[in-house]
């Protein structure tokens, strides 16, 4: 077994009202970042786990996202990085 550190991004699904993202975008506009078109605020989760290989580690993390880490009704997730540790 090897050890992996996997980071996951979870964001509100496009099309679902994201008042937090909108508030942050408004604040950025106030600060003068007029080029900002859209902001979405989500979660960044880092999981340390043991797995046979990288493929198994990623599959296991995807299962975690589908069952607990992300809400399939309102959120999308993606694996942001995988690192052997």
């Amino acid at each position: 077994m090897s050890r992996y550190r996997i980071a996951v991004h979870i964001v509100p699904r496009r099309g679902i009202l994201d008042p937090q993202g909108k508030t942050v975008a408004d604040a950025l506009h106030t600060l003068g970042f007029g080029s900002v078109r859209d902001v979405h605020v989500g979660r960044h989760i880092v999981v340390d786990l043991e797995a046979r290989d990288q493929k198994a580690a990623e599959q296991s993390t995807r299962d975690m996202c589908e069952r607990l880490l992300a809400n399939p009704v309102t959120e999308d997730f993606e694996i942001a990085s995988v690192e052997a540790t």
Binding site: I16, P19, V73, T74
Partner: peptide, 17 residues
């Protein structure tokens, strides 16, 4: 109950935050 799949949909942060 929504998280458990007993009811459809989800309850998100109030629009007013």
């Amino acid at each position: 109950a929504c998280e458990a799949g007993l009811l459809p949909g989800a309850l998100l942060r109030n629009t007013s935050l």
